[in-house]
Nucleic acid binder design. Sequence first.
RNA 1: GCCGGGGUCGCCUAGUCCGGUAGGGCGCCGGCCUGCUAAGCCGGUGGGGAUACCCCCGCGCGGGUUCAAAUCCCGCCCCCGGCGCCA
Length: 456
Amino acid sequence: MPWSILEYLRKDPEVLRNSLRKRFMDESLVDNAIKYDVEWRKVLTEVNNLRHKHNQISQQIAKVSDEERRVLISEAKELLKTIEVLEKKLDEIERVRDDLLTSMPNIVHPSVPVGSDDSYNIPIRAWGRAKVYSEFLDEFLRNTAGKGVNMDYEVIDWRPIGHADMLEYVLKLGDTLKAAEVSSSRFYYLFDDIVWLDIALLTYAIDYLTSKGFKLVLPPYMLRQQYMAGVVDLATFKDAIYKVEGDDLYLIATAEHSLAALHAGDEIPEEDLPLLYVGVSPCFRREAGAGSRDIKGIFRVHQFHKVEQFAYTMPEQSWDVFESLISNAEELYRNLELPYRLVNVVSGELGSPAAKKYDLEVWYPAQGRFRELVSCSNCTDWQAYRLKIRYLRRKGTVRDYLHTLNSTAIASTRTITAVLENHQKPDGVVEIPKALRKYLEVYSKAPKDYIHPAKR
RNA sequence: GCCGGGGUCGCCUAGUCCGGUAGGGCGCCGGCCUGCUAAGCCGGUGGGGAUACCCCCGCGCGGGUUCAAAUCCCGCCCCCGGCGCCA
């Protein structure tokens, strides 16, 4: 039963305290959990002893005479009363203990920078030649060379139009105002060339990853609460997840959720690992904590399409696979000619499931900042424990929790915004990345090289 | 949604009517035996707590009846078949 968190809780709790400190969370959680775990084991032993006594009496009853039976039955009944009281106590302790355990975030990996917010993220490498409007040069340099990673750039003397205005007013290929009226804010209608682009981006990513041996999956878009709770933490549940009224179903916020649930309860032989999946699905997000951030355009929306990489691995494989998932993502963005930097995300911004996370951030010329397009996480055994997914080593003699990892490949709407800003010409024409051409050529009405501003 | 059948230790299966320690086969692991292999024999093969014995829980899930539930009762989930509805 070596779930890393429970194991450390019993053998070396300082590891957990230290991890919580790095996340700026209250480390008393650990001592509280220890207290309840010790108490739980103590009461469990008491209950088990009483149950044993009761079982013994119960088994005698079948074999004795009528008079003896009457005596034994009343004895058993007495015992049951005691057991019942103690079992109630045990259930209560167990409930508290499990709540404490499942509220425990994953253990922060030693290589994760410690810091409270994303200004402490550490850039690891950068790629591409960023178009930097003169006014944004200081900001650009502060976030590249200033943080120890050099990135090629060219200063431009015109300010590109922001992706939201491009979509809505220059190209006139999106209508977020009507969508807000009929749905609510953060919804959108997209038309023609942008829809082709959305489709092409998805097939592009699918083609790339299936060529690399990933198994293609179209997963359920809704999951029961039990499985959703195995994949996400409470904060995500509250802020990101839509509930379907009248059913025990939740809309997925990413294919990661369904792909993690795919092997819930399974035991996977060592020789089958790693299992690599590429899922494609719509994603539904409440964005409850977002306030009015990115309220314009389609950067932060309630629904979008995403191609997602997901891996099940042996514990000793997961850090290598982690690196390979992010390098897949990088290659996808390099081929789209989108300049990016890769950051090692600070401890304070890590979600509970993740032990370590890389974000791929593309430079947005009109906004003058880097923005997250890809998030790649190693969840180690955090999800596997909750979903009871184990590996079998050496023909079933060792059984243990495996590791799960996930990474964005392409999130459609967000990638579209990056294309609209980075491949925009001074005259408002958007050049389509050549890597997408092949996926657009199959459609007679799809654009092939350029998307042109609407005629007025 | 309705009617019927089903869900037992990795797989197959007995036990359910009639309540009393869940049995067998296959596979797998370990051991014995043996020129080698096969066969044969012995033990193990779910979760948890103790770890020197050992104990508790586990028959789709959750309740109930009972000293005692795989077995009886109630609710739910899933699978198969039929009917209905349907892109």
